[in-house]
Simulated scan of single mutants.
Amino acid sequence: MATMLAKHIIFPLSLFLFVLHEFPVANAMLVKDMHAFCKETNDVNFCLKYIGTDKRILAARDLNDVLLIAFSQCKIQVTNAAKQINKVRQKFSGPIGKERINFCERNYGLASTMFQEAYEMGQQKMLAYRAHLTAQVGLDYVRDCEDEWKKNGPIQKSPVTFYNTNVVKLFSIIRLIISKLKH
């Protein structure tokens, strides 16, 4: 168990360091800066895995570029959740299950639009805070989907909890970036 845990902790960091060492980019954020940033998040390994190993991090010049990556990663998680919904749709054939699946499908579509808008708005550095607020709306749509599995009938396990959790973690990274950009 400890060996497996060590692999899960070490792999994202080693992959991150390999990518940045092997593919240096002029004017890019320094490896130590990215690692120091991830240490400030609630989940260092998650940050390194989803932000630190994103191929676009090689060209990131500042935290605003990292913010764009976080918005994009949220959209990727939402897209993957929508694919998961389509895979499990037939397992929820009763009226409550169908209603929940349709609700989540609609919400994830709306969330995708919000994260895309946040990304586009975030490209204009002066709109970073407004982009953050738009992403917050996307997060709310994702959370509403998760909550739908606990109300209006028997409680069921949501088939998209993994993606919901990832979006919540990514949004905590977005909040950290916004707090740093304000100063």
Rank of each mutant, 00 (worst) to 15 (best):
G122W: 00
D62G: 06
Y141R: 06
C145G: 07
R100C: 08
V31Y: 00
F18W: 15
D33Y: 01
L170N: 01
L110A: 12
P12G: 08
F16T: 04
Q90H: 12
E99Q: 15
M126F: 11
F46A: 07
T53D: 04
I178D: 06
A81Y: 06
V31N: 03
M34Y: 01
L110W: 09
M1G: 07
T79L: 14
T134H: 01
N27F: 05
W149N: 07
F46C: 06
R56F: 03
I101W: 04
M29A: 00
F92R: 08
T41D: 07
T79K: 13
A135G: 04
N64Y: 08
E117F: 03
K7I: 09
Q84Y: 09
E40N: 12
N45G: 11
T3E: 13
N86M: 15
K169M: 11
I174V: 15
A111R: 02
Y141I: 03
V142I: 04
K55N: 04
C74W: 01
E148G: 06
R106D: 12
K49Q: 08
K157C: 04
V167H: 01
R89G: 09
L63S: 06
Y50F: 12
K150W: 05
K150V: 05
M4L: 13
E117N: 14
S93Y: 08
C74I: 02
S93R: 10
N152Y: 09
L13G: 05
E40V: 05
L20F: 01
G122A: 09
R106S: 13
L30G: 02
R89S: 12
A26E: 15
V25K: 11
V88F: 12
N45K: 06
H21P: 01
F115S: 00
K83M: 13
L68M: 14
Y119M: 02
E40G: 11
R100D: 09
Q116C: 02
Q90E: 15
A28Q: 02
P95W: 10
F103E: 10
V44Y: 03
I177Y: 01
M29C: 01
R130Y: 13
G109Y: 09
I76P: 02
E40K: 14
H8G: 06
N27I: 02
I177K: 01
H35I: 04
Y50K: 09
C38D: 00
I51Q: 00
K87P: 07
T41W: 02
G138Y: 00
Y119K: 04
L63H: 05
V88D: 13
G138W: 02
I155T: 14
L13H: 05
R175M: 08
K157Q: 12
A70I: 05
H35N: 08
M29K: 00
L58A: 05
D33A: 09
N64G: 10
L176Q: 02
A81I: 09
E117T: 05
S112M: 09
E120H: 07
M1C: 08
K91G: 13
I101T: 08
I174L: 07
V31I: 05
A82D: 13
T3A: 12
